[in-house]
Design a protein around this nucleic acid. Structure first.
Length: 577
RNA sequence: GCCCUUGUAGCUCAGUCGGUAGAGCAGCUGACUCUUAAUCAGCGGGUCGUAGGUUCGAGCCCUACCGGGGGCACCA
């Protein structure tokens, strides 16, 4: 909200007819701002800023904390050091530095080098007294590789003329030993101006402290970035759900496992792409602004194009444009991208979410089941997991082939009713507290199915062969036109995937678009007439299998996350002043 | 949209029966060259989500609103 006004007016003015003049004016403004910034900078460095007394004047505690940091910032500037850092080549990740621990050795006075004792594998659980071990070897010294690391300060333990600092990069933490005698007075003074949350770089020697802790013994410090806000509590981290989502950067840095989950998310998405690419698919980017929001039954977000003065919808599915590409001869095509649905929010629903849809010419829904299994197994592999995982304290067995069960069989099993017993199903529907009046029997059946069957599907199950009347984009079974060649994959009652043998008969497609589903209001029906799509089908779409996977739900299941908000970096939240 | 629940210092949390607002971390000052959430001594830090109401008196009770979480509805 806040940023919208100025941003919109900038965009408008750049596009207007007097664009050039306004652009020149903006450039002028930016230039003068830059000069002002440079002036401020030089002022800071050349003059000794009077220190602000944190206890005086402003009694707001937040400002007291900010003032303390501001004072240190100015002192750093007055030392002639840029508090915002810069290029820092050849630094090693802390993970790689930890892997070099074996390079640390002990060199005795007579020139022999000894390996260090094994700090990790003391079965007795007793701490190894490394200081005693060293004195047992007689005179000599520890030698270790020179390393360069960088990261954010997450803990500090000053003990007089010695400061222990734990820094964190995105692969983990490492301890830094900053001794006044070792780094010199200038760097030790700089270290006195460190705050929790600051980014620093360190050159030093990798070694072990007397207690065996792997440590970089600093020889040169580099200041990388001052942090003007106090970090979360150092032990508990950030527990407030709202703050974790609004300030995800703090969540990522200070809460255990968060970075790991989001890096896993990246690996899963990469694995999905790899699987499809290896199979000969091409990835495309379809339009996200649609004139008709089709391909699913969901309420779209409405937007507007100014120059064309035209309403537009944010896409709710990828399907119809990918099928147009099948018509064009892209025989294996997919898109992995964001769709938008203007519906309720829950632990399993975010208004924008990531969807995969893939279409393969000359395949059918059976092929798509195998592809689904392959995608999931490869994603598990990419995150270092086998096919047995735990989600929400419950086991899931992803060992292929997944169970396949017919819709009607599951229905009969759960309800003890004949799937064709329209009256009996309607009665059960009523008993479940719903109203079947005026609804198509298949819709009534589908609602009962959702109520009674889906929840019980814990291990991966392909529910196959849906009633055709609730599948307007799906090819019917050749020997039974009342059944559609469709499957949905359920895991722990959650719909994870949805696939069809695609309907490529333009005449039937047009009829299904035209015939509103019985008992459904127009806005609720997925059968929205899309003449342009029908025209595409009339130009000939090869028979094909199509698959959709809810990527966020897949990531939830593979990272043991019970809320979609834990695996979407910035879930939608209400605006706050 | 409806129901339940929650909001106290920068962060994590106490706050009894309605009777002057508490702790730890973080911050500031001092001590300390092998610490591990370092320790020790001292100091500062509050619009109790917001606005009303009840009361001699409200962090606490009531109403409305705002934000979060959970559930319902919606979501082929």
């Amino acid at each position: 909200m806040r940023g919208r006004g100025p941003r919109r007016s900038l965009r408008l003015s750049l596009k207007s007819s007097s664009c050039r003049h306004r652009f020149a004016r903006i450039t002028q403004k930016i230039t003068s701002l830059l000069f002002f910034a440079v002036y401020l900078q030089s002022r800071h460095i050349s003059m000794n800023q009077p220190e602000v007394d944190p206890s005086a004047g402003d009694s707001q505690p937040r400002n007291v904390l900010q003032t303390a940091r501001l004072n240190k910032l100015r002192k750093i500037e007055s030392l002639g050091i840029d508090p915002w850092g810069g290029y820092f080549p050849n630094r090693e990740l802390t993970r790689d530095v930890r892997a070099r621990a074996a390079e640390i050795q002990f060199q005795t006075a007579d020139g022999r080098t000894l390996p260090l004792p094994d700090f990790g594998a003391n079965a007795a659980g007793e701490a190894i007294d490394y200081r005693k071990w060293k004195s047992d070897q007689g005179a000599g010294e520890e030698i270790g590789p020179k390393v360069r690391v960088a990261g954010r300060i997450v803990l500090m333990r000053p003990t007089g003329k010695l400061i222990f600092v734990n820094i964190r990069d995105w692969t983990g933490d490492i301890q830094i030993f900053i001794g006044k005698a070792q780094v010199g007075d200038a760097d030790f003074d700089l270290a006195g101006l460190f705050d929790l949350g600051d980014w620093i770089g360190v050159d030093g020697r990798l070694g072990r402290t007397n207690y065996g802790e792997l440590t970089v013994f600093a020889e040169k410090l580099h200041f990388m970035c001052k942090t003007m806000e106090p970090p979360p509590e150092k032990h508990a981290g950030l527990t407030d759900q709202e703050l974790r989502q609004r300030q995800r950067y703090l969540d990522l840095t200070y809460n255990e496992g968060v970075m790991d989950t989001f890096l896993k998310r990246t690996k899963i998405v990469q694995a999905v792409r790899d699987t499809l690419n290896r199979r000969g698919y091409c990835e495309i980017e379809g339009p996200t602004l649609h004139t008709i929001a089709g391909g699913a039954a969901a309420r779209p977000f409405l937007t507007h194009h100014n120059a064309l003065n035209m309403p537009l919808f944010m896409r709710i599915a990828l399907e119809l444009h990918l099928k147009r590409l099948l018509v064009g001869g892209m025989e294996r095509v997919y898109e992995l991208g964001r769709v938008y649905r203007n519906e309720g929010i829950s632990p399993r629903h975010n208004p924008e979410f990531t969807m995969l849809e893939s279409y393969e010419a000359f395949a059918n829904y059976e092929v798509m089941m195998e592809l689904t299994e392959e995608i999931i197994v490869n994603a598990l592999k990419a995150t270092g997991q086998g096919t047995q995982v735990v989600w929400n304290d419950k086991p899931i067995d992803f060992t292929p082939p997944f169970r396949r069960a017919k819709y009607n069989d599951l229905f009969q099993e759960a309800t003890k009713l004949d799937p064709h017993d329209v009256e009996g199903i309607a009665a059960l529907h009523r008993r479940l507290g719903m109203d079947p009046t005026g609804k198509h029997p298949d819709v009534v059946k589908s609602e009962v199915f959702e109520e009674l069957c889906e929840e019980s599907l814990t291990n991966p199950t392909f529910v196959i062969d849906y009633p055709a009347s609730i599948c307007p984009l799906t090819k019917r079974k050749q020997d039974d036109p009342s059944v559609a060649e469709r499957f949905e994959l359920f895991v722990h009652g959650m719909e994870l995937a949805n696939a069809y043998t695609e309907l490529n008969d333009p005449l039937l497609q047009e009829e299904l678009f035209r015939t509103q589903l019985d008992g459904q209001a127009e806005e609720d029906s997925m059968a929205k007439m899309d003449d342009d799509f029908v025209l595409a089908l009339r130009n000939g779409m090869p028979p094909a299998g199509g698959l959709g996977i809810g990527i966020d739900r897949l990531i939830m299941l593979l990272t043991d996350s019970r809320s979609i908000r834990d695996i979407v970096l910035f879930p939608l939240l209400r605006h706050q002043d």
